[in-house]
Amino acid sequence: MSTPKQLKVANKDAVRGLGIKLLIGLPISGLFWTIIFYFFVSNESWNFKILLFFSIFGIFLGGGSIINFAFGSSVYQLWHKLISLIDSIIVWLFLPFFYYLVFFPYSLALRLTGKSKFNQKKIKTSSYWREIDNSKNNKRYLQQF
């Protein structure tokens, strides 16, 4: 039932857009790390090498992508591979974590208090048909429930 990952097709605009984001984004990340380092690792001197490193990286990848499309599309592909990697880590690591540690205890509690309809004792009944609530006004049709 899950959607297969759609292959991102690199077009000129998308590649250029990513180039600009890298050109601006990587130096900002560099600055951020520089600050982190200053306060948490060595609070004596600013280590601007980190900023420089990130910036060169950003200029190289971002600038390169803007100038050369072929280079840009490989950066684009790589970037999206990274994204799908992060995506799968979140999905396959965090979701199971969440399911067992948060969702399961909560549902257990609900089940014990009799809120879950799937675990209620079968009541002897002569019909499984349910009444449909027809007190709808037309506004209901703009709602998603």
Partner: peptide, 14 residues
């Protein structure tokens, strides 16, 4: 899912 947890993880993650 609430009715069946911890079963159903695979379907949940999908």
């Amino acid at each position: 899912y609430i009715g069946f947890a911890p079963k159903g993880l695979k379907s949940f993650v999908h």
